[in-house]
Design a protein around this nucleic acid. Structure first.
Lengths: 210, 210
DNA sequence: ATTATATTTTGAACATCATTTATTGTTTGA
DNA sequence: TCAAACAATAAATGATGTTCAAAATATAAT
């Protein structure tokens, strides 16, 4: 009776092993420059095997993005329901979470934000697309709940909370993508953290009732 | 003596013709799905000819982005030096410009924002990279000048103007990319315009001295 | 234990492009 | 009229994502 379960477990392990190899290669080369052959090599498997676990290159990439999105959501859930801090403090904790995730693995995060592109979404299987939709929606709900709390507490101006959550997420992705590419264009040092700090300061100030 | 000039002109025309074909195809298919063969077909040329005018696919794509960036900068220059409106009004005009550009050709704009990715930048010739750096820098300078004016006028809080300009640009790109991809994920209608309106409202409020 | 069946993996074949190059065609200037 | 310069082409090349028939391995049945 345990055989089937063990096989299931092994299948899941193999999947994780491929994803870990993919994470390394995508992180080092970016989506286009990474090759399935190199990922297979890193995972000590043949290229064909990758297609038994992922429909195609885009779906393998998307699975990594889903993982990091889930991680972000998990981190947010650790503090959104806390009663001892108000919405403004939660916004600051959110900012810290965002910065931590960026610093932990900048490339995977940047790749996640790039995924937000129509051409990629078209190549996903319905299941993975569904999973991505679900995960994004969870992340956005968590952010929305902070905003709503701020409005309820009379700290934030009463705008549409979903739009506000979108703007928070958009600012996060926009700052990471733009400041990082500016660094590459101008051989600057990495200002992502500082710019995120300032952006959140401005956003928070913009949210508040005067 | 005019022959050389005519040839120069024809060369420039052919370049434009290729870019126009590329614009159509990239706009319809996105970067990865668009093929050089299809672009060549659209331009009524053979694939090889494209390489006499552009080093590679990425450089052709980048040329389009430079064009739209130049257009944005041009639009900004029309009002940044006006004396009859203050910095806050200029911010609103900036927002309108951003919305107009999005509505004129969403895909080319989205592709521009996607370009802001390290892996693409590595494949550009030094000249085109230089041109892109220059153009981005021009656009950012224009935005920075609005922010600086606001600080000088005592309307905006005195933060680092360059960081503030980065945040404006990052918010623009972030909102366009995220809200558009959310639309694709959830089959929603296009909320980019409304979200940009709200984002600017919040940002402007966040900039202001209370 | 042996054989049959099912599962998993392989690696070579295939198809699709981006890019290069040898060739052809065209314009210019003498 | 012709040679040199220029421009464009079509076919070849190479890289790489993806598929598939065969091999290897594990499980189940007799």
């Amino acid at each position: 009776m345990g055989i089937h379960e063990r096989k299931q477990r092994e299948k899941e392990q193999r999947r994780k092993q491929i994803m870990e190899a993919a994470r390394k290669v995508f992180s080092a080369k970016g989506f286009n420059k990474a090759t399935m052959e190199e990922i297979a090599g890193e995972a000590e498997l043949s290229p064909g095997t990758l297609y038994l676990y992922f429909k195609n290159k885009e779906e393998l990439h998307t699975s990594l993005s889903i993982d990091i999105l889930e991680y972000i959501t998990e981190q947010m859930k650790k503090f959104i329901d806390r009663q001892d801090i108000n919405a403004e403090e939660k916004m600051n904790t959110l900012k810290d979470t965002f910065i931590n995730v960026y610093e932990y693995d900048p490339m995977v995060l940047i790749n996640l934000f790039h995924l937000q592109s129509g051409e990629t979404l078209k190549n996903l299987s319905p299941e993975v697309l569904e999973e991505l939709t679900e995960t994004s929606s969870d992340a956005l709900s968590a952010i929305t709940s902070i905003v709503s709390e701020g409005i309820d507490q009379g700290i934030f101006a009463a705008k549409h909370p979903v739009a506000m959550a979108d703007i928070i997420w958009a600012t996060y992705s926009g700052v990471v993508l733009w400041v990082d590419s500016k660094r590459l264009l101008n051989n600057e040092k990495d200002f992502v953290k500082q710019t995120l700090e300032t952006a959140f300061e401005i956003m928070l100030n913009g949210f508040k009732i005067k």
